[in-house]
């Protein structure tokens, strides 16, 4: 069964801005799905419509087979949303925010306290349960929004830039947590500007730009479309000019740092052999940019030129 089906979704705002131009999406049950796009592409509008925060202009949305127009409450009860902006009562104690949210889904107060404890412990916020939300740090506020979204145990969790502005340690802990709840059966849709995050977590991906889906495929298939990769090599001895290797484009960017562009059909072994023959030892190597980032930039640039030409 599909966790989410979107068909021909349109949204035109009152000022005439067409945010969505007929997008269609299908997210399978249990998937970890990335919805990527530049700022203003339409991601948040799409998410707001799925979460009933924005009225659509046209199109259909169904959650686990329940139509968002005709079976509204059944569909809504299966969604949990972690929005981009903090949207809780800053003056309310943490535990009450969760208990109230559980209540809106029909969970009685006593059971809601138990659920709240479970969610807060999972996200390491139990010690802060009596603290007013405004006194939490940025990372804690993000975790509070995740705990709140999970308190009614949704089957579909939508995370709209959940790790924005949090330090790397907390971000990695959150990744681990997201993987864990996904492995327990929760379907996750993730939007993020950290493409490394999407690459390491998500199995399927859609890229949206100018209100249209420009790519929808599996992460592995998308990454296999990468024709060239750029690497940064740290070498053992200082050079005054870039080494010349037939078939490779090398640039000296520091006296002991070289950038190289490798085509998909070229092997890394032959690159290293050629360097070794010139007496250059490679001490370490890294991607110049994230692979998904490179593809993302290409796809968005392509979409932009198509938009301009049309």
């Amino acid at each position: 069964m599909s966790a989410l089906v979107i068909e021909n979704l349109h949204k035109t705002y009152r000022n005439g801005f067409e945010a969505l131009k007929g997008i269609s999406l299908n997210v399978a049950e249990g998937d970890f799905f990335a919805l990527l796009g530049p700022n203003g592409a339409g991601k948040s509008t799409a998410i707001s419509i799925i979460a009933s925060l924005t009225n659509k202009t046209a199109g259909q949305v169904s959650i686990y087979g329940k139509d968002l127009d005709r079976q509204k409450n059944e569909a809504k009860s299966m969604i949990g949303l972690v929005p981009q902006e903090f949207n809780f009562n800053m003056w309310e104690p943490v535990v009450e925010i969760l208990v109230n949210q559980a209540g809106y889904y029909g969970i009685p107060r006593n059971a809601a306290f138990q659920r709240a404890e479970e969610s807060l412990r999972q996200l390491d916020l139990w010690d802060k349960r009596h603290t007013q939300a405004r006194w939490l740090s940025g990372g804690m506020k993000r975790r509070l929004m995740i705990a709140r979204a999970l308190v009614h145990r949704p089957k579909l969790l939508i995370l709209d830039e959940p790790t924005a502005g949090v330090d790397i340690e907390i971000r990695r802990a959150m990744w681990q947590f997201m993987k864990q709840i996904n492995s327990q059966g929760t379907t996750i849709i993730l939007t993020t500007h950290y493409l490394e995050e999407a690459e390491s977590l998500c199995r399927n991906i859609a890229i949206i730009d100018h209100g249209r889906i420009v790519e929808q495929t599996s992460m592995s298939h998308l990454l296999s479309q990468l024709n060239t990769e750029h690497f940064v090599l740290d070498i053992s001895k200082p050079l005054t000019m870039a080494p010349e290797l037939p078939g490779y484009n090398l640039q000296l960017v520091g006296d002991k740092t070289v950038e190289v562009t490798v085509q998909r059909e070229q092997s890394m072994n032959s690159l290293f052999e050629s360097l070794t023959q010139q007496g250059i030892a490679v001490m370490s190597m890294r991607n110049k940019q994230n692979r998904l980032e490179q593809l993302f930039i290409d796809l968005v640039a392509q979409s932009k030129s198509e938009e301009q030409s049309s």
């Binding site: 009933s52 809504k76 009860s77 949207n87 009562n89």
Partner: peptide, 18 residues
Amino acid sequence: FSTKLQHYIEELLIAPVP
């Protein structure tokens, strides 16, 4: 008005509350 201003009206809008 506070519910609107701080956006926690969204807690109710997203939930199955008529």
